[in-house]
Design a protein around this nucleic acid. Structure first.
Lengths: 343, 343
DNA sequence: GTGAAAGCGCTAACAA
DNA sequence: TTGTTAGCGCTTTCAC
């Protein structure tokens, strides 16, 4: 079917040996002091025959694929697609390609993706784990394959990561709510066992405790980072009796917040007059909402780039097993109009 | 560094021939009537040695990579990241991986990506071209590599595509504006030579002409699908003298619309009381904006899935050169609150 | 039922 | 300055 123009085709056509052609095509012409005439002839013939190098053969030979694996829970989430964009750009600049895998927040799929990337001899792997299990990730590292976690990580497990200072971000956000007089603050959380969620909820709790406000378990609801989760639990929270009414909501993710807003809209509850809202994750559309949202921003510091920096460092050092440092990038509270000061 | 457990390792350990092991591992045990004892032994040993198949070697041998290439202009645009999600899911279900490339709306990068995918023996390629050039795409098809365009296509060029009925969508949107009394409608366009843009602008023009409204060149502005483009040109449009004031804007893309909204907000122009707006591309946050946006939706029909259907069909038929049909998925006008009826 | 061996396209050590 | 050759890990035809 596909006519195969190989190095050998080019060499045969020219009556040269294929290694000569290989050298020229790899830019080693000068190094091997191959005559200018030969070099030109080779290049012309390659062009003429429409030669396309075969990366698969090259990878097999070199035992590296010039490919970086990227595993994210949901590529359609702007937070992750922005990371993907950064990673892809930077990879390309450095001569790497990216193999994209979407785990759909499912550990099994994540494991399969990780296995796949190994099958493909990925030179390095960046993964935003679902956050539930880590053994398969540790095993990758043990095999000497460079690996960096993003967004979520595991405490006390020696896997390098780049994430956000979720704890501080959440603390700051809730301190801000409290400063504005809020005491009954609901927290809609994401996937319970993920570091991102744990840290954000802990920040929330710490803020309340700092001000002598009881942390009420019934005000911490939800179980994943989805629109549905935000929508559903907002509906639930809103149904509570008036005397226990919450005055503010702290949402731990952008998709959740969208669900919250949708539910509030349906219930005809206004922000911030009826209810205040602070959300994790910023995006440029959030300031254009019917109430511009006060958010904890962490888009500005680029997680993807930092992760790649570390990954390349590990790949260069060739002792992948040694690295285990984590980086927490700072957050920033972007104050807009979704919080009302109450007495 | 990386210890290599190969089929040979497993075979040697068992005193078997590597071809036997290969057969077992590929599930051909029964076909070759290999004894159950041997099969079990092989599986156990593979497990024990932690054998990981090498897809690179496999691909080289089989001359296919089980990989689909996906080239998009901007993965951080929700429209494309949603497509990527669909494509990835469906690929995985069918045993394919995806190699993701981001062209950044740059033809050169697009060409490089396409070349790269060929180097990697991608079994098929899905590309949302920048829309300016097509020769490199035709050449891919000529080589017998299955290729399907999405989102944008080339008229009279025999490349199969899956896109949206942009013309109808734009026509309907502008008919709606006109029905609401608007006559001075500005159109903020995307990349001028792309099919998506051409069709959308044509739909806009046709609607005006249908109602005897002059198409004014100065009301068709802009040059790409970015936030910046929408922002900048809205600022410009707004500065025009009062007597020529536009009453409505038709935006040809979601990112553009975000820019429009940002600019209007800064200029303190209210939607729809001061200005009406209809936008191409729907998304769930658009109904949550300070004015829920009336949009031309085409998210619901999944371009990615349809494109993969066609791609798989071509791949199966093994005569990639024959296919050149295009599919235009329907759009839907989602009426919200961003258009005011004027006299 | 299992083994031997060729070869996918490429690189690089060694040879000349 | 160019050629020879081994081998990366795998599949598959042919042989027994």
């Amino acid at each position: 079917m596909r006519k195969n123009v190989t190095i050998k085709s080019v060499a045969d056509e020219l009556g040269l040996n294929l290694s000569t052609v290989s050298r020229v095509l790899n830019g080693y012409g000068e190094k091997y002091r191959i005559s200018v005439k030969t070099i030109e002839a080779v290049n012309q013939m390659a062009e003429k025959l429409n030669y396309v190098p075969n990366n698969i053969a090259k990878s097999l030979r070199l035992k590296r694929s010039s490919t970086i694996g990227l595993v994210v829970p949901d590529i359609s989430n702007p937070w992750f697609s922005t990371i993907a964009l950064e990673v892809e750009k930077k990879c390309r600049k450095n001569g790497y390609n990216i193999l994209l895998c979407n785990s759909g927040e499912d550990v099994k799929t994540e494991k399969r993706s990780i296995a796949l990337l190994q099958n493909w001899m990925a030179d390095g792997i960046i993964v935003a784990p679902t956050g539930i299990e880590y053994k398969h990730l540790v095993s990758v590292k043990k095999k000497g394959i460079p690996l960096v976690l993003i967004d979520r990580f595991f405490e006390n497990i020696e896997l390098p990561f780049v994430s956000t200072n979720d704890y501080n971000g959440a603390l700051e956000a809730n301190e801000y709510l409290i400063k504005n007089g809020h005491k009954r603050i609901a927290c809609i959380q994401g996937i319970v066992n993920t570091s991102a969620n744990i840290q954000r909820v802990n920040g929330y709790k710490r803020a309340l405790m700092n001000h002598g406000i009881d942390v009420l378990p019934e005000l911490i609801v939800g179980s994943d980072f989805s629109f549905q989760n935000g929508y559903h639990h907002t509906k639930q929270l809103v149904k509570k009796s008036a005397k226990n009414k919450i005055t503010a909501v702290f949402s731990t993710g952008n998709q959740i917040s969208l669900g919250v807003l949708k539910a509030l809209k349906e219930e005809n509850i206004k922000i911030p007059s009826d209810l205040s809202l602070v959300s994790f994750d910023d995006h440029n559309y959030l300031e254009l909402l019917y109430t511009p949202l006060t958010t904890v921003s962490h888009m500005n510091e680029s997680v993807g780039q930092k992760a790649l920096d570390i990954l390349f460092e590990i790949m260069a050092d060739n002792n992948a097993k040694e690295y285990s440092d984590g980086y927490l990038l700072p957050t920033q509270l972007v104050i807009r109009e979704s919080v009302k000061a109450i007495s």
